[in-house]
Design a binder for these strands. Structure first.
Lengths: 197, 197
DNA sequence: CCCTTTTCACCTAGGTGGTAAGAT
DNA sequence: ATCTTACCACCTAGGTGAAAAGGG
């Protein structure tokens, strides 16, 4: 059951294009990581970032008979972790707090040679997204030059990186909930009778 | 001839949609205002902005017989001018200087009730775009709280605001140079034989 | 009559999973 | 056998001028 919750956040780091080398192998996260911040100093500058921590030292495979992810050996060597800086950074505390922060520009890839600054993950490995809030001391402030930050982890956002979906119910979930996958929806569902359009 | 140069920057503040009230009457500037900055302090924060100044107190109309803009009376009352802050603001001097700054998010409207923060212009009036570079003194700095800025004006960027094109050659120029108008191009031109896609 | 608004087909730009071919 | 890559049809989202309709 725990495993199912993780499954829901399963993401794809699939290959694409190659016509433009820049575009090779990159996909968004879906669902998008969103968060709301409280308690910042309204008039100070903050940087908001995300990174991805390997959950364990294992490689997984999907067992179809049991519909479960099972350990399939030791982890591949991980790349030095990259950080995705939220594009609104830097911004004042009051700007960060006044609305939900959405990481919809964050892109994942399994291309070790990536030069676009995308987050590099190993397929078939499990990851824990992490939120980082950095305080930027102003000029002349006592702590200038020091980097103060705090890390937030939401265990329910763990997921398995894949290049192709392993679990049919995840595929269906994404098709039903991601607007860009509308073309694959069965319009027999009550979805299409609702107020959607 | 001078008038022709202005003509080239002619823009449209045309109406759209209305299904979404938010979307009523707004168009981009084309060609986009672009600029390159030098001589900033690399490690200080700057805001980069644009606004639009009425060139004179006149209203114009287009004389088809003479293919010229002619004065057609006194100017309508202008709205208090809005400022478009470049979305990368604030940023350090070295970030502004390392590449061309493009104002492609700037939108014009003639909707006096606009609530989106778009630039409000009067149709059939002449405008001068202005660039503003604001220096933001850091915390504890001597000039903190004071707003230091410099204004840059490029006379060749003056233009007439319109809701519909008056001059056929402007229409042709835009169709030929704006990628979004590709559907209106005559493919008899040598354009289509070139290395364009 | 002159200008503005609305709607439209046709683009750019880019995010989906399916699918077949490729790689190991 | 298992996972990855490349390509595709089909979407979302939004920027074009043409043309018809609207308004003073």
């Amino acid at each position: 059951r725990e495993a199912l919750a993780s499954d829901k956040a399963l993401h794809q780091t699939n290959g694409l294009d190659l016509t433009k080398w820049k575009r090779r192998g990159q996909r968004r996260m879906f669902p998008t990581f969103q968060v709301r911040l409280f308690g910042l100093d309204p008039n100070s500058d903050y940087n908001v970032q995300m990174d991805f921590e390997p959950v364990d030292d294992k490689r997984y495979r999907y067992s179809f008979p049991t519909s479960c992810w099972v350990v399939a050996g030791k982890a591949d060597t991980h790349m030095p972790p990259r950080r995705h800086v939220h594009p609104d950074s830097p911004a004042k505390g009051h700007q960060w707090m006044k609305q939900i922060i959405t990481f919809d520009k964050l892109k994942l890839t399994n291309n070790l040679m990536d030069i676009n600054g995308y987050i590099i993950l190993n397929s078939m490995h499990k990851y824990q997204p992490r939120l980082r809030v950095l305080y930027r001391p102003g000029k002349g402030e006592q702590t200038e030059g020091v980097c103060l930050y705090r890390t937030f982890i939401f265990p329910e956002t763990k997921f398995m990186a894949v290049t192709a979906y392993q679990n049919q119910s995840i595929t269906r979930l994404k098709i039903d909930s991601n607007p860009f996958a509308k073309g694959f929806r069965d319009c027999d569902q009550n979805d299409c009778l609702g107020m959607s359009d």
